[in-house]
Amino acid sequence: MPISYTDQQIHDKAVQLGLITADAELPRNLRGRVVAAMAHGDAAERAAPVEPQLAQEIAIHGNSILVDGEPFPWLVAAQPMDIGLNPDGVSTVRLTLMAATVQVIRPEPRPESE
């Protein structure tokens, strides 16, 4: 997938890197360096494992599911949901996700010294 950034994104990154001020124009000889820095950062972000986080709020309105105010990005099967409400702690929602394919990979066995 080709990397593509807008002129404004490149300008903003150059300002963030301290190469220019916000009202200055980016010299053409620095543009490639800024794009390379952006691409490197994007690659590192994709490679870094995402830490699981606790949702602050899940709202279910008919067919719409919002997680922390953002639409849930996956298809949910028309199956009953299991909702556990716990006013004194962490509540839970169990639902069925739809997928074109599913792959189950066994974890490698841990050495006994761990």
Rank of each mutant, 00 (worst) to 15 (best):
Q103S: 15
N63E: 15
P27A: 09
D23P: 05
I105Y: 03
N86W: 06
E108W: 10
R33Q: 15
V104F: 00
S4G: 00
D88T: 07
A39D: 01
E57V: 08
L85F: 00
L17P: 10
V67I: 15
A78Y: 11
A14E: 03
A55Q: 08
Q9I: 00
V104M: 01
H40P: 05
A47D: 09
G18V: 10
L66G: 08
D68Y: 10
L95F: 00
P27F: 08
P49L: 04
T96A: 06
P80N: 14
A37D: 12
G69H: 08
V90A: 08
F72W: 14
P49I: 05
A22D: 07
A37M: 07
V90H: 07
D68S: 09
A78R: 13
N63T: 14
Q8C: 06
R31K: 01
I60R: 07
V90Y: 08
P52H: 07
A39S: 02
P107L: 02
A47Q: 09
A48E: 11
S91P: 03
H11Y: 00
A44S: 11
G69N: 09
A24S: 15
P2D: 03
A43L: 13
G69W: 08
H11W: 01
R106F: 02
L17D: 10
P52K: 06
Q56G: 13
G18H: 09
G84A: 00
H11S: 01
R31N: 00
L66S: 11
G41V: 02
V102R: 02
M1P: 06
I60M: 10
